[in-house]
């Protein structure tokens, strides 16, 4: 439906559970009718535009157990409702996982980072403008994609993994967490499960309506980052139209372990090129044992975008992605 802009919020209930059990109970009871609220920075636009119409919001930010950064035996655990500003400024994260601090520190604008949460940044919905406009496309449960057609405006859309829908992941922290081999902790009334960051996100081929594996009634409560990549050499870069607010045209998050001149191991992940953060395992394998240099970077550039299927207006993402991967490798 063509979006009608409203300035006021729709009539909708609000729950502010103070503890985990109440929150999980509410989430399970309300199911799809309940909208999980982190910082809400991606929520109120949907609601004000009447393009998503849940009947209640469940605010999770009052639950202290899901907030904050703690050191664990083998890494750190970040509560899902920790704000992005807190993450970007946390000394522990800055010193050990600078990649995440950098990614969190470049999201949207200062005020959004002050309120927006890590969980919210990870599970925020895609920015395809047709979808955001409230059109009933595939992702909204319809039977058409407006972006992938000869005349569709698809400059911001996917190079890879398109299956009817060509939307991309908008998150800056998601590629960083995939690169850091993080684990997502998902809770529900029936218990807790852990999913590797890489498998947390799903593409349209598997689920065209949702971008994550979260089921009804489940809440992302924490992110665990193992020490595997602590203090590695990191590289993060986001290219967006404007330097504030805008979502990445392509972003890259990479971690390298080197011994002497050579790369022992690496993880390179690109965002905004697929519906899920895209890990470049071929490139990672190819650069092992080589130096972080121009020649290595140039040698694997084409490999980074192998299999890309550009749409009409996003051809530029191919060189952009190659260049960002090259930069990451060059360091």
């Amino acid at each position: 439906m063509v979006a009608t802009s409203h300035d006021v919020m729709p009539d909708i209930e609000l729950y502010q559970p103070a503890d985990e059990a109440t929150a999980l109970d509410l989430a399970s009871r309300l199911g799809n009718e309940g909208w999980l609220l982190g910082g809400g920075q991606d929520t109120y636009g949907w609601l004000k535009d009447r393009n998503k119409n849940p009947s209640a919001m469940i605010e999770l930010t009052q639950i202290d157990a899901w907030k904050g950064i703690t050191e664990t035996v083998d890494g750190i655990e970040i509560g899902a409702v920790t704000t992005l500003t807190d993450i970007a400024r946390d000394p522990l994260i800055q010193s050990r996982f600078g990649l995440l601090a950098e990614a969190a520190g470049i999201v949207a604008s200062p005020q959004i980072r002050n309120v927006g949460t890590l969980g919210g940044n990870l599970i925020q919905d895609t920015r395809c403008w047709y979808y955001r406009r409230g059109l009933d496309c595939y992702r909204a449960g319809g039977n058409i994609c407006y972006a992938d057609s000869p005349e569709g405006l698809n400059r911001e859309h996917a190079l890879f993994g398109a299956s009817r829908c060509v939307a991309v992941t908008p998150s800056d922290t998601a590629p960083a967490l995939v690169a850091l081999d993080a684990t997502m902790v998902i809770s529900s009334t029936s218990g807790q499960r852990e999913i590797p960051a890489q498998d947390f996100f799903v593409g349209p081929d598997r689920d065209i309506l949702n971008m994550t594996v979260l089921n009804e009634g489940e809440i992302l409560t924490a992110v665990r980052i193992p020490n595997t990549w602590a203090n590695a050499e990191f590289y993060f870069e986001k290219v967006a139209d404007r330097n504030v607010w805008d979502f990445a045209l392509v972003n890259v998050a990479a971690a390298f372990r080197t011994s002497g001149e050579n790369i022992e191991d690496a993880r390179i992940v690109c965002g905004a090129v697929e519906c899920v953060p895209r890990r470049l395992q071929d490139v990672e394998a190819a650069i092992r044992g080589r130096s972080r240099s121009d020649s290595t970077a140039n040698a694997v550039a084409d490999m980074a975008t192998a299999g890309a299927r550009p749409l009409n207006y996003n051809n530029f993402k191919v060189p952009l992605m190659q260049n960002l991967v090259k930069r990451a490798i060059r360091g």
Partner: peptide, 13 residues
């Protein structure tokens, strides 16, 4: 039913 781009109601399936 759903609304098409122009807000007209059309069959969805």
């Amino acid at each position: 039913f759903k609304r098409d781009v122009w807000g007209e109601e059309v069959i969805l399936g």
